[in-house]
Amino acid sequence: MLEVQNATKRFGGLIAVNQASLKAAAGSITGLIGPNGAGKTTLFTLISGFERPTEGRVLFEGQDISRDEPHIRAQRGIARTFQIVQPFAGLSVVENIAVGAHLRHARRSDAMARAQEVGRRVGLGPELDKSASSLTVAGRKRLELARALATEPKLLLLDEVLAGLNPSEIRDIIPVIRAIRDEGVTILMIEHVMQAVMNLCEQVYVLAQGKIIAEGPPAEVCDDPTVIEAYLGAGAAERLKREKVHA
């Protein structure tokens, strides 16, 4: 479905993403984790088209889309959410979602109907006619999800949709994400909430300092010494192992 081949992104002298490659199989949920500043969001912008890779390619359904504008990629079936939520603040919740729905529905009434349907699905039913700016953080995250979903994507890029939510809100939204996958949407998600990553993802990539340092099923990746060191610093893996033995 999605394949990133040796993507590199330089901002002047800074290499944000360095020769990163990853694959997301159709119908799967793939996780992208890594410490802060690793380049996860930058890698997402390369996939969604907001930035172009300095080197390397992005393939979607076998076609090279590295040079396509974001709206072309959306038409092809790639939708993204924003880590920092970007609601259309002056519009109501349902109008926000309808902008996404308009991608596949030209008529206003069709788009609004579709928007209400999607809104209810992600649990925004009671909020549909409220102003988007009146939503709580959890509500705004759901709105991001709903808008992206309303474009009827094949590939959904979720950039920390769970960040800032409390445990019960996270518990509520995990089944929603799984249900989206079960309908055949491929999902690639950046997530810090490990509970969700362990729960949802079949395959996880770990990005640190712009490089993919590990990949595999979540349980395996979490035990990988290089991953532990990327998060906790050099020597941490060794220390943890010792502590485990002592305990």
Partner: peptide, 26 residues
């Protein structure tokens, strides 16, 4: 006000990046 063009135009006014991500040719 009642058309797709208008919805997309208002989306551009409110947040251009978000509009792009939703497939609007801004």
């Amino acid at each position: 006000e009642r058309s797709r063009f208008g919805a997309q135009l208002v989306a551009v006014r409110e947040n251009e990046a978000a509009a792009k991500a939703l497939g609007v040719d801004t």
